[in-house]
Nucleic acid binder design. Structure first.
Length: 305
DNA sequence: CTGCAAGGCATTGGGCGTAC
DNA sequence: GTACGCCCAATGCCTTGCAG
């Protein structure tokens, strides 16, 4: 163990990181400002050291072995930790920072989790920028890892594992329709609820079944879903312009003056929203500041309610 | 299928700096 | 001075892609 550590040149790890990122010796060399043979030589020493071929020549450059794949995440985290440990910890100054943050969030998550903080963000950190991305590639863990996004907002269900997380809110469902909708003036029976024309949001755009339908099915009931849209903003817009109704997350419609909202006539399980971020940003002062801003805003507005 | 060009990795041999 | 390690340019060799 000590022997292998003494033989371990930390520079080799930087090379390995670049090799795994590029999967190409020549490009890794360019990245490292070294000549290709140098990196080839270093790869040889890494292979010797780790007793694994690491990268195998294949179609389209080199493909990493299983061992190399396992190494990639921990290695990147370790190097990021070293880098932040060695660089002077510049305290984050929101008033001066020109930071750009990239957040992956659905339109619901944007409305429910980001808008509450937006004016505070603009006031406290006027030179920063915020990019809200709907779905970068679909693989949040990877996008966070390689810096395509800095933060992801996600339900707890099916949240990618191995990421840092913080719970933001517990959301419940409400029944929404346009203000003045004739059916919602009085308290609604379950039967009347099922008879209404419903709209749903289905991420892939083609589904007609949601949590409400599962809750109804448990009672042996069914409703009429006549419209399916692929994002929440379209759903809200559909409600405003028609007599359709929809069961939606409460925070989506809280500030929609054109909509009437009431409790649905049956219990529908809500959901929990998290924010997710990679290990490399866990101790980043700017990132910590943003996370606290978002979370604390939601806590205080939640408490007022 | 064959021949050719291009791309890419590994090896070689020499220059340079450092430690003893 | 010698040994050693690091790096580079040049070169060899293999694979892939493509035209005929």
């Amino acid at each position: 163990m000590h022997n292998s550590l003494r033989r371990l040149d930390l520079n080799l790890l930087v090379t390995l990181d670049a090799l795994l990122a590029e999967q190409n010796v020549t490009r890794a060399a360019r990245l490292l400002n070294l000549a290709q043979p140098t990196v080839s030589l270093q790869l040889g020493r890494l292979r010797d050291l780790l007793d694994d071929p690491l990268l195998l020549p294949g179609p389209r450059g080199m493909s990493p072995t299983e061992r190399a794949r396992e190494l990639q995440g921990p290695l990147r985290d370790a190097l990021a930790a070293l880098e932040s440990a060695l660089s002077p910890v510049a305290a984050f100054e929101p008033g001066r920072s020109h930071q750009t943050w990239k957040i992956a969030a659905s339109d619901y998550a944007t409305t429910a989790l980001i808008w509450p903080s937006l004016s505070r963000l603009r006031r406290l950190a006027p030179y920063t920028r915020l990019a809200l991305v709907n779905k970068p590639t679909g693989d949040y863990a990877k996008d966070l890892e390689n810096g395509l996004i800095d933060l992801a907002l996600h339900t707890r269900d099916e949240a990618p594992p191995k990421l840092r997380q913080r719970s933001l809110i517990h959301e419940r469902y409400v029944l929404a329709a346009r203000r003045g909708h004739p059916a919602l003036a009085t308290k609604l029976s379950l039967k009347a609820f099922c008879a209404l024309e419903h709209a749903v949001m289905s991420p892939d755009g083609a589904g007609f079944v949601g949590s409400t339908d599962h809750a109804l099915a448990a009672e042996g009931l069914e409703r009429r879903v006549v419209l399916s849209v692929s994002n929440f903003n379209s759903l809200v817009s559909a409600l405003v312009h028609s007599d359709l109704v929809a069961v939606v997350p409460q925070r989506l419609v809280k500030h929609e003056p054109a909509l009437h909202v009431q409790a649905p006539p049956l219990a529908i399980p809500g959901f929990e929203m998290l924010m997710l971020w990679p290990e490399r940003l866990h101790r980043d002062p700017a990132h910590m500041w943003l996370r606290d801003l978002i979370a604390s805003t939601l806590e205080t507005t939640g408490a007022q309610k």
